[in-house]
């Protein structure tokens, strides 16, 4: 089973790491994951489809 990958750091997210799964806020076509560490450190993310940059 493939683990989800964080959109910011590209690291796999283990089940106990408490990542969050969200559709792209702008286009909604891509669903990506953010790991807890990247959310804590406010690492940015970019939608691979529409280029929206967050948070």
């Amino acid at each position: 089973m493939a683990l989800p990958v964080c959109v910011s750091c590209k690291e796999p997210i283990l089940p106990e790491q408490k990542g969050v799964k969200l559709p792209c806020p702008s286009c909604g076509e891509v669903v990506f994951w953010r790991c807890r560490k990247c959310r804590d450190l406010v690492n940015g993310y970019k939608c691979p489809k529409c280029g929206f940059q967050g948070p």
């Binding site: 408490k18 990542g19 969050v20 799964k21 969200l22 806020p25 953010r34 959310r39 804590d40 406010v42 967050g54 948070p55």
Partner: peptide, 20 residues
């Protein structure tokens, strides 16, 4: 593990927030 939207002012940190 749910997404968070936050109304942030200039003095807020956006820690654990997915859309500011």
């Amino acid at each position: 593990g749910i997404p968070v939207i936050g109304f942030c002012d200039t003095d807020n940190r956006s820690q654990l927030i997915d859309l500011v």
